[in-house]
C-alpha cells in the first residue's frame, strides 16, 4: 500500500525485528504450555527448559479420560455454536435497527444496551441463579445458554452498529428502489457488508463461551451437561494442581480456539468495495 516507506530497507529491517520480537513474546507461553504438557509434575518445577527430557505423551490420554473430555467436548461445541449463532443473529438485527431505522425510543434503548457494559455487578451470579430459578431453568441447557447470549449482546450490537453506520446511504436507497423490504435490506445488503465485523464477533464470543466454566458450575448439578472447561477444573484442586494434565488439557482446548480463529480470520478481509455496490 504505502510504497515509499518500503524503499527504506533499514526501516524495513526494523519493522521485521519489531514484528518478530512481539511474536516471540506471544509464542513463548504457548510453547511453554505445550512443553509442560509433556513433562512430569516434578520436572515442570525443577527443569525450566522448554525441551522435556522425557516425553510423557500419556498426560494427554490421562487428561482426556480424567477430565471426561469426550462428553464435555460435545457439550461445549453445542453451547458455543448455539450461543454464537444467536448472538450474531440478535445483535445484527438490533444493530441494523439502531443504525439504519428510525423509531421512537431508539437512542434511549441503544444507550441502555451500552450502559449494561459499564456497571460491574457484584454478586451477579446470585441474581442470575434467582432469575433462572424463577423460570425453572436451573440445571438445563437453555438456562446456561440464555445468560451467555445476553452477556454477549451489548458489545456485539455496538461493534456491528459502528460497521453498519459506514454503509453508504446510496446502497440502501438503491435496494429500496428495487423494492426490498427492511428485512431484505438487512439480509441482502447489511449483513454481507459487515462480514469482517461478524468475524470479530464470532471470535470474541467463541473465546468467552468456550472458556466459560463459572456459570456452568453455578447452574448445573448434572455432570453430563457440563462444558469442557469443567474438565480442566478437575486438575486444579483446592491445594494441589496437576500441572502436566492441566497443561495437556489446556493445549487441547486452546487448539480448538486457535483453529476457529484461523478459520474466521479469513473473513476479516476487504469489506466494502465498489463491486459490492453494483452487485
Amino acid at each position: 500500500m504505502y510504497k515509499n516507506i518500503e524503499d527504506l530497507s533499514l526501516s524495513k529491517l526494523g519493522i521485521h525485528v519489531f514484528l518478530i520480537g512481539v511474536s516471540i513474546s506471544c509464542l513463548l507461553p504457548l510453547i511453554w504450555m505445550i512443553a509442560s504438557s509433556l513433562k512430569t509434575q516434578d520436572a515442570i518445577f525443577t527443569n525450566m527448559s522448554l525441551w522435556p527430557e522425557v516425553f510423557k505423551f500419556s498426560n494427554y490420554t490421562e487428561a482426556w479420560k480424567g477430565g471426561r473430555f469426550g462428553t464435555y467436548f460435545l457439550n461445549s461445541l453445542f453451547y458455543t455454536v448455539t450461543v454464537i449463532f444467536f448472538i450474531v443473529l440478535f445483535s445484527s438485527m438490533a444493530a441494523f435497527a439502531f443504525s439504519r431505522l428510525d423509531f421512537p425510543g431508539k437512542n434511549i434503548l441503544f444507550y441502555m444496551f451500552i450502559g449494561v457494559m459499564m456497571i460491574p455487578i457484584p454478586g451477579v451470579f446470585v441474581a442470575i441463579f434467582v432469575i433462572l430459578n424463577k423460570l425453572s431453568l436451573i440445571n438445563t441447557r437453555v438456562g446456561y445458554i440464555l445468560p451467555q447470549i445476553n452477556a454477549g449482546l451489548p458489545f456485539s450490537i455496538y461493534l456491528l452498529k459502528t460497521f453498519f453506520d459506514k454503509i453508504p446511504k446510496e446502497m440502501e436507497d438503491s435496494a429500496k428502489i428495487d423494492g426490498c423490504s427492511k428485512w431484505q435490506i438487512y439480509w441482502h445488503v447489511a449483513l454481507p457488508l459487515a462480514k469482517s465485523a461478524i468475524a470479530v464477533i464470532v471470535i470474541f464470543n467463541a473465546l468467552s463461551t468456550w472458556n466459560e466454566f463459572l456459570l456452568a458450575n453455578l447452574i448445573f448439578s448434572d455432570a453430563d451437561l457440563m462444558p469442557l472447561q469443567v474438565g480442566l477444573l478437575k486438575f486444579q484442586g483446592e491445594r494441589v494442581t496437576e500441572y502436566p494434565q492441566l497443561m495437556a488439557g489446556m493445549t487441547m482446548t486452546t487448539a480448538f480456539i486457535i483453529v476457529t480463529y484461523l478459520f474466521m480470520q479469513r473473513f476479516i478481509i476487504k469489506g466494502i468495495t465498489a463491486g459490492a455496490v453494483k452487485g
Binding site: G123, V126, F129, V130, N133, L218, S221, L233, E238
Partner: peptide, 22 residues
Amino acid sequence: FELSAPTDVYTSKVRAAAQTNT
C-alpha cells in the same frame, strides 16, 4: 455428591440456593 468449584462459585451457589429455598 455434587461438585461445584472453585470456592467463590460454590459460595455464590449456596447463597443463591438459600435465596430461592433450593
